[in-house]
Simulated scan of single mutants.
Amino acid sequence: MRSFKTTAISAAVLTAGLVLGAPAAAQAQTSAAPQDHSAACRSAVGAAMKAEHAYNAAVWDLKKQIAAGGHPGMAEEENAEMLKGEADSAASMAARACHHAGPHPHGGMHTGAGSTSQGVAGGEVAGGVGLLGAAGAGALALRRRRVGGEA
């Protein structure tokens, strides 16, 4: 009887994993929000990229000057700091413009069978449990036949 107990426990654990894991996987897959490509978002992202490019160019000039043996002055360093602040500000504005632009989804999600917003589809879960039970019973029968034929 030990093999039946092992088979039953294995089938129960596998069934619990499937029943509890499938809705969570479906929720994780549908929770990714699509990007907003509105005009305000696109222009804010463009401005942020332009500001970042200006900052990167200033830093590259500073590094080039230092590599050539020069010593950058206070004006160059202040310019790089100012451009960094502008780039950070533009990136923040782009994030706000892209996040708040357009309507946001609300309400229940209609994802089909097994959706977490509509509850669990009992028939499908029962069918899955039945298939796992049949697989376990078949494995038990094959194991008993193999053990009985070797004796």
Rank of each mutant, 00 (worst) to 15 (best):
R2D: 15
R2I: 15
S3H: 09
S3C: 10
K5R: 10
I9K: 12
V13Y: 01
V13D: 01
V13H: 02
L14R: 08
T15N: 07
G17H: 01
L18N: 00
V19H: 00
L20D: 03
G21C: 04
A25V: 03
A26V: 02
A26I: 05
A26H: 12
A28R: 06
A28P: 00
S31C: 02
A32L: 13
Q35I: 05
D36N: 15
A39E: 14
A39V: 11
A39R: 12
A44F: 14
A44I: 07
M49Y: 09
M49L: 12
A51P: 00
A51S: 09
A51E: 08
H53R: 09
A54E: 15
Y55P: 00
Y55K: 03
Y55H: 03
A58C: 09
V59A: 08
V59H: 07
V59C: 06
V59G: 03
W60A: 12
D61T: 15
D61W: 05
K63T: 10
Q65N: 02
I66L: 14
A67V: 08
A68P: 02
H71I: 05
H71E: 11
P72Q: 10
G73H: 02
A75L: 14
E77L: 13
N79Y: 11
N79D: 04
E81F: 01
E81A: 15
E81G: 12
M82W: 08
L83R: 10
K84Q: 05
K84C: 02
K84S: 04
G85M: 03
G85I: 02
E86F: 02
E86H: 09
E86Q: 14
A87I: 03
A87G: 09
D88T: 11
S89T: 13
A90Q: 05
A91E: 01
S92E: 10
M93H: 14
A95T: 10
R96Y: 01
R96W: 11
A97I: 08
A97W: 06
A97F: 06
C98V: 08
C98T: 06
H100K: 11
A101T: 02
A101C: 12
A101D: 11
P103C: 07
P103H: 08
H104I: 08
H106F: 12
G107P: 02
G108S: 11
M109A: 12
M109K: 15
T111R: 05
T116G: 00
S117D: 15
Q118F: 13
V120G: 01
A121W: 13
G123M: 07
E124G: 06
E124N: 12
G128E: 01
V129M: 12
V129C: 04
L131Q: 01
L132T: 01
G133V: 13
G133Q: 08
G136D: 03
G136M: 04
A137G: 06
A137H: 01
G138C: 03
G138E: 05
A139L: 09
A139Y: 07
L140G: 07
L142D: 04
G148R: 12
G148Q: 14
E150A: 14
E150N: 12
